[in-house]
Write a protein that binds this DNA or RNA. Structure first.
Lengths: 213, 213
DNA sequence: ACCTGAACACCGTTCAAGT
DNA sequence: ACCTGAACACCGTTCAAGT
């Protein structure tokens, strides 16, 4: 075949196919040969469009970041900092819940990824505009990322096996119900996220109230 | 050589070597061949002691969990729930900071790992003993894990590249100082963790105060 | 410029063979 | 029981060759 008159691949097509593969089968399923097969080309062809497989995954991660709504941080949006942060956290979590397998890549931080940087820029800018000192605004950006990424990296409920025999009462006297967690996964992880988010925002509000002192 | 009169390997020796390799060079450096070479044997020898490479990494993860002090949750320890949770969070983070590369494995939850289950049991048991309803105690265990794992999974500060040119003010108007984050990594991540932890505990204290209502 | 097959240096795991 | 080398079906990446 050699070179076709019209290119078979494009960075967009590759990222779309890689995203679908990551969502469907996880990071481990993405090999250059498998991804190329999915696109109807041979493995090495990908290297005409990306320098490494890692760059492809970075692009998938950035495409995911780009789906997170940031309009709550617009200067002319009239939500206060607390409400903005709350709405953004829910929007961010919703995107990550739809694409859990890419979270380990996203959790490494924005690096040079444009959508990741836009997100960090929006949060930091909005906190400073709301009156938080820059050092505190940085901390807020960091601690929100800890909490959101941590909640998306692995389900708490699914972290416990669905097998009553795994929880010997002699060893784990308080885990008698732990085998039931998995089947109520969504409810438990969502409830914990909401409880944690409220606690975080309540706590930050206390600190905000003492800013002038 | 074939079988020596005294076994060359043991599960302990393998886990110790694997932990050292993970700490020194990261998860990606752990291949069965490399690990075996480190132990002076050939690759397939490991399969006499573990069924898969994954089981080896699970054992490394559990050995890490086992390092986390849980004495603050002892029934006869006189710390209140808030202080216990605070002290435990610091102890947990300290361990993870020393072994960051294994965090992705730990973040998948305890599964069947004994030290992971003991940890979950201790937190849950102490919260119930302190008067939290079981459903709330579960949420606390989950949200604390989100926050602690998220903070350990990737440094916030090192998530930003150390290159002023990466932050075009036209694109990211508020990130003019972001290139300085990396060089103050420890201070920033620790400060964010402490701020977030205090906010979380302050927020939970508010909810605790309304429990009777 | 953009695709191909062949090749290199790796993987995890299985298995028969050795003691 | 516990080690070995050979083998299988994979990897990511490079490169010369094709149009």
């Amino acid at each position: 075949m050699a070179r076709p008159r019209k290119p078979l691949l494009s960075t967009d097509r590759i990222v779309t196919a890689a995203s679908a593969l990551v969502d469907a089968e996880g990071l481990a399923a993405v090999s250059t040969r498998r991804l190329a097969a999915e696109l109807g080309v041979s493995g090495p062809s990908l290297y005409n469009h990306f320098r490494t497989k890692d760059e492809i995954l970075e692009a998938v991660a950035d495409a995911t970041s780009a789906q997170v709504d940031l309009s709550m941080f617009d200067p002319d949006d009239d939500r206060d900092w607390r409400t903005s942060l709350h709405d953004w956290a829910l929007a961010y979590r919703a995107v990550l819940t739809r694409h859990p397998h890419i979270v380990p890549v996203l959790a490494q931080g924005p690096g040079r990824r444009p959508a990741g940087l836009r997100l960090a820029d929006a949060v930091f800018g909005a906190m400073v505009a709301a009156g938080w000192p820059p050092a505190q605004a940085t901390r807020i950006g960091a601690l929100m990322r800890y909490f959101i990424m941590g909640s998306a990296l692995g389900s708490f409920a699914r972290g416990f096996v669905d097998d009553e025999a795994a929880y010997d009462p002699a060893d784990y006297p308080h885990l008698g119900q732990a085998h039931l967690l998995a089947e109520r996964q969504e409810e438990i992880d969502e409830g914990a996220f909401e409880t944690g988010l409220r606690a975080l925002l309540d706590g930050l509000s206390i600190q905000y109230a003492t800013l002038g002192d």
